[in-house]
Design a protein around this nucleic acid. Sequence first.
DNA 1: CTGAAAGCGCTTACAG
DNA 2: CTGAAAGCGCTTACAG
Lengths: 338, 338
Amino acid sequence: MAKTTMSDVARQAGVDVSTVSRALNERTAGMLRSETVEKVLAAAADLGYQPNVLARGLRTQRSHTVGMVLPDLTNPFFPPIVRGLEDALEVGGYTLIVANTDNDARRERRALHSLVGRQVDGLVVATSHIDGDEGAAAVGGLPVVLVNRRGTDPTIPAVVPDDDAGVALAVRHLLDLGHRRIGHVAGPADTSTGRTRAEAFARITGDAGVHDPSWVEAAHIFGVEDGMAACERLLERHPDLTAICAANDLLAIGSLRALRAAGRRVPGDVSLVGFNDMPLVDLIDPPLTTVRIPQYEMGRQAGELLLQLLEQPRPRRQRKPVAVTPELVVRQSTSAPA
Amino acid sequence: MAKTTMSDVARQAGVDVSTVSRALNERTAGMLRSETVEKVLAAAADLGYQPNVLARGLRTQRSHTVGMVLPDLTNPFFPPIVRGLEDALEVGGYTLIVANTDNDARRERRALHSLVGRQVDGLVVATSHIDGDEGAAAVGGLPVVLVNRRGTDPTIPAVVPDDDAGVALAVRHLLDLGHRRIGHVAGPADTSTGRTRAEAFARITGDAGVHDPSWVEAAHIFGVEDGMAACERLLERHPDLTAICAANDLLAIGSLRALRAAGRRVPGDVSLVGFNDMPLVDLIDPPLTTVRIPQYEMGRQAGELLLQLLEQPRPRRQRKPVAVTPELVVRQSTSAPA
DNA sequence: CTGAAAGCGCTTACAG
DNA sequence: CTGAAAGCGCTTACAG
């Protein structure tokens, strides 16, 4: 049951391995007589030959593998991105290897290192702790695309949600309902999404003449526990708030818990808007009003960008982040203030 | 910025590449003078040398890569399994490549094929359509372990939830609450979990003298839509039921929708128990009573089993599936019948 | 149109 | 203790 190799096929077809290689490669099959090609194909099929991708990669200096670093696959936000990415990469014949970093800078560095050791041809980075530049350095000039975050290096392409538009959707919805005392449970200040959304919130509420920065309270990480704590702090400072806009759904869920623990009903006493529209948030109690980010689409676009970089490595140039358009999903966690 | 190779290190250290190889490998470093080893280590560190895992794999005939096929990463049941698996495999220096099959037999076959082409050293199979035997054949005798399902070939190790115990927990809970007219929204009959749980349900309710097989209605796939349809059929046949035990949480959520659509309150009119305790089911309305499967733990154990097979390929032998112990999580979707 | 040779970056018997 | 050689399974100039 030893694995069939190209020389097995060559022997069976009565040709040289180089001929087998040519016959099996679409681009080079044309230089062979069609009978030869058929002979080889038949032998290959007969033996159930499966090319050794590693050996090919060693020779061609391309592993046809792409690495992705993300904080945690267990966060339901990421799997759709991964699927979109895979689907896009598949058309170029690339396989994805995913590494979890648990928001730990050291693990992140290790993961990057290990992926480079596995000879990935490119990288997709969805983590927040390693800066684009530093990452690029660690990575030895490999093509990189960022997803769901912006880097500081403008030559590194990024695919991000249009956070400004998303926050505007959420805040506008609350304003339209009649809310004026609106708090923001923000994401970590060391993440680009956290910062961008907080800034958008401040700007939009400021423009609407609503209030000051004390209405923003940042969590340390994008998690339920942290959202709960941040919401508690916000409630302490502004017990009279009537609405909360959270920087993602996990923070919203944490806020929901904090509100419940404080005896506030949602949306009776406080309206709540999330961000992302994760799977299952339509099933929580109450079904969460949120801003939907097209995750699969973000992954797909990131994959296509990377594919471009992989196939035609052009000189780096400035590029604006690709912003995918969010959409407000009104469910039952928001209503007019009492 | 070309990648540093072993011969770069050799040149810098003034030794042969074979010496570099020996110095960098713990097992062989002992045959070298410690000064030599240090010289090499210094050169490697200096150049930021990163071994080429592909080249090593080609030579040693081990890619140190493991493939996993699962239906859909987007199903929150799987990510914790993946993480457990990765954590277990990491200690052996293995990297995991995950392939989604969307419950499609053709995609499944293709994925398996592609993973074998990538020279994976072993496989973890969490899909249901390809039988263990067939899979093993497709895979050319590679070590395989099944997770969350049983195969028909008893020499292939499997890690599964203890479904009998889990269903017993669920049914016992409903019986204890006083329910007697209990339906089962079963999983697909062509999956081992679907079948096993349905059989357990029938046996346990039978033993309790409760009722007959007409109280079981199977979905075609483990999904919300299908659960809804199956529950509707069940309601039609048994409009007087007071409790439903679903074969997984997605089916439970579908059942919840069907019950709502039929004007039944949960748990007021009908109690509902899920299976798995997926992330976020504690947040749905009402918080779902369910049977918790230790997913991470299943993944971890599968990883350890595979590691054993990988490190010491013994002759195949019969083995009982490893059954991980479930746990009842009582929340608010169950109560005594009206 | 096809074969023989070299080489991708490693590891590992084989010498010395 | 270390070097030189062969070879893992491919691809691709180079001949012919």
